[in-house]
Every structure is written in structure tokens, then in C-alpha cells.
């Protein structure tokens, strides 16, 4: 069985190949299609822990302060994610409201909390089963964090509002920019296999 741990199947072209050991900053690419298979990812849980704490602070800011203020005909409305959802619910758009609250609020919050729990448990090398279950959830949840899409949607909405509304950007607008940058350039860049390799390193090393 241990032989299988030296193998990897490329997610993009399904070519079977042998794993290579990487030095710092090295990257393993598929011999067939050239896709990046994995990077050197020692201490990856410490990295995700630090990034998730930073992202969580930004996420709290985004949800406390309004993203922008829109003034139409002298009336001021503030945009926050939860206020937006509650208005959809009030109008009876349960399906749209539910998917928006899952994608923009529940999924990112759970992802960050799970990364933080994984980081803490793995540091003390405890809770192997919990970490394993959380890792499965984390990999699935990552596809559901769409604050980057939401950010572009704000810009599109602005174009539609420009004619008859005055818009003032608030603290959360900038927090959202930082959050999206953090998410795209760091958290989304970490491949699932890097997380699992490190899990293996921390919890199952004694078998090797």
C-alpha cells in the first residue's frame, strides 16, 4: 500500500506519475499536460492559520460596516450582505436569498473557522479525525466562496445606478478588496493535495 503514496494522478489529464520530493519554492508539474501538480508545502497549516485569522478580521469588518451608501432622491440606503439578504427574504425570494446567504456569508465564515481549527489542532498534533473531516469540508467549501464574483457584481451594479444615485464608498468596500486579494493570491492558490500531504506528514508520519 505504501507504494501508492509515491504516485500521483494529474487532475487535468489523469496521467499517472511518480511523486518527486521538492525543495523550498520548487513546483512539480505534470509530465503530460504541464499543469502544476503540487508545490512544496511544509508548514502549510500554519500559513493557512495566519491567513485565515487575517481574512476573518476583514470578513467581520465587511459584515459590520456598510460596503457603500447609495443616495437616491434624498433617501439613503446602506449596503451590507445581511441587509441585502433580509430584503430578499422579505420580498419572498427565499431561493435567491438562501443561496446568497450561503455563498456570501455562511461558506466563507465556515471555511475560515475550519482553517483556524485545523491550524491549532495540527500544531499540537491532536484531533486527527477532526482534522481529516474538516479538510474534506474545506476542500468542498472553497468552491463556494465567491466574494470575488460579488465584488465584480458591485461594480456592475454601480454602472446601473450611476444615472440617478449618489454613491459613497464605505470602510467595508476597501476591506472587501483586501479580502478578495488575500483569497485569490493565497488561500485559493493552495492545492488540496498540498493540504493532504501536510496532513499525512503531521499525523501519519510514524508509519513511513
Amino acid at each position: 500500500m505504501e507504494d501508492l503514496d509515491h504516485l500521483i494522478i494529474c487532475r487535468h489529464c489523469q496521467t499517472l506519475q511518480k511523486k518527486v520530493t521538492l525543495k523550498e519554492n520548487e513546483v512539480a508539474k505534470c509530465s503530460e499536460c504541464g499543469e502544476i501538480l503540487y508545490k512544496n508545502a511544509s508548514m502549510v497549516f500554519h500559513k493557512t492559520l495566519a491567513l485565515s485569522i487575517a481574512a476573518l478580521i476583514l470578513f467581520i469588518l465587511i459584515n459590520i460596516f456598510p460596503i457603500m451608501e447609495v443616495i437616491i432622491a434624498g433617501q439613503k440606503n446602506e449596503l451590507t450582505i445581511l441587509q441585502m439578504v433580509s430584503r430578499l427574504f422579505n420580498e419572498g425570494f427565499i431561493v435567491v436569498g438562501s443561496i446568497v446567504v450561503v455563498i456570501l456569508f455562511i461558506a466563507p465564515l465556515m471555511l475560515l473557522l475550519f482553517f483556524i481549527i485545523i491550524g491549532i489542532l495540527s500544531h499540537f498534533k491532536v484531533g486527527k479525525n477532526i482534522v481529516r473531516k474538516l479538510l474534506i469540508l474545506v476542500v468542498a467549501l472553497r468552491n463556494w466562496v465567491m466574494l470575488d464574483v460579488f465584488f465584480i457584481s458591485i461594480l456592475v451594479a454601480l454602472v446601473k445606478l450611476f444615472g440617478y444615485a449618489k454613491i459613497i464608498f464605505d470602510v467595508s468596500f476597501y476591506a472587501l478588496i483586501f479580502f478578495v486579494a488575500l483569497d485569490i493570491f493565497t488561500l485559493k492558490n493552495i492545492k488540496p493535495i498540498e493540504l493532504w500531504n501536510y496532513y499525512f506528514e503531521v499525523y501519519e508520519n510514524e508509519k513511513n
Binding site: I72, A73, N77, M146, V156, L161
Partner: peptide
């Protein structure tokens, strides 16, 4: 794939911020 959600988010944002007597936006 996730980018196909843009229009849904735009609707949610507009519904969220445009809420005055003369103009109403609904999903």
C-alpha cells in the same frame, strides 16, 4: 463557473440598495 452568479448578485445588490418611494426594484 462561479462567475455565472454575477447577475444574481447584481439583482440582490440593487434590491438591497434601491428602496425609495418613487423607485422600487424587485427580484
Amino acid at each position: 463557473g462561479p462567475w455565472s452568479m454575477i447577475d444574481v448578485f447584481v439583482v440582490a445588490i440593487l434590491v438591497g440598495v434601491v428602496h425609495v418611494h418613487s423607485i422600487q426594484i424587485k427580484a
